[in-house]
Simulated assay, not measured.
Amino acid sequence: MEFLNDMALFVEVVKAKGFRGAAEASGVPNSTLSRRISALEKAIGLRLLHRTTRKVELTEAGQIYYERCRRIVEEARIAHEQLGEMLAQPSGVLRASLPVDFSVTYLAPLIAEFARRYPGLTFDFDLTPRRSDLVSEPFDVAIRMGEPENSQLIARPLASLRAQLYASPAYLARSGEPESPADLSNHECLSMLKSGAGTWTLNRDGDMQTVSVGGRFSLNSVGMIRRLATLDMGIILMPEAIVTDDVSSGKLRRILPDWYGAPLPVYAITETRLIPAKTQRFIEFLRERLGSL
Rank of each mutant, 00 (worst) to 15 (best):
S221W: 04
V222D: 01
G223I: 11
G223H: 06
G223S: 13
I225E: 00
I225A: 00
R226A: 01
R226I: 10
R227H: 14
L228A: 05
A229S: 15
A229F: 03
T230H: 09
L231H: 11
L231F: 08
G234H: 02
I235H: 05
I236E: 05
I236D: 06
L237H: 11
M238Q: 15
P239E: 09
P239S: 06
P239A: 09
P239Y: 11
E240L: 15
E240D: 09
E240K: 15
A241P: 01
A241K: 12
I242R: 01
V243I: 09
V243N: 02
T244G: 09
T244S: 07
T244W: 13
D245N: 11
D246G: 05
D246C: 11
V247Y: 09
S248W: 07
S248N: 13
S248E: 15
S248C: 06
S249D: 14
S249M: 06
G250H: 13
G250L: 15
G250S: 11
G250D: 12
K251C: 10
L252S: 03
L252M: 08
L252R: 02
R253P: 01
R253T: 12
R253K: 13
R254L: 09
R254F: 10
I255Q: 04
I255V: 10
L256G: 00
D258K: 02
Y260E: 15
A262V: 13
A262N: 14
P263D: 15
L264M: 13
L264V: 12
L264Y: 04
L264W: 02
P265I: 04
P265A: 12
P265S: 12
V266K: 08
V266P: 02
V266I: 14
Y267M: 09
A268G: 07
A268H: 03
A268P: 02
I269S: 04
T270V: 11
E271F: 07
T272M: 10
T272R: 11
R273C: 07
R273D: 14
L274P: 02
I275R: 14
I275A: 06
P276L: 08
P276Y: 10
A277P: 03
K278D: 03
K278V: 03
K278L: 09
T279R: 05
T279N: 12
T279M: 07
T279Q: 09
T279I: 07
Q280D: 05
Q280E: 06
R281A: 05
R281L: 02
R281T: 00
R281G: 00
F282L: 00
F282P: 00
F282A: 00
F282N: 00
I283S: 04
I283R: 01
E284F: 04
E284Q: 11
E284V: 02
F285S: 05
F285W: 04
F285I: 07
F285Q: 01
F285C: 04
F285H: 04
F285N: 03
L286I: 05
L286W: 00
R287P: 04
R287H: 11
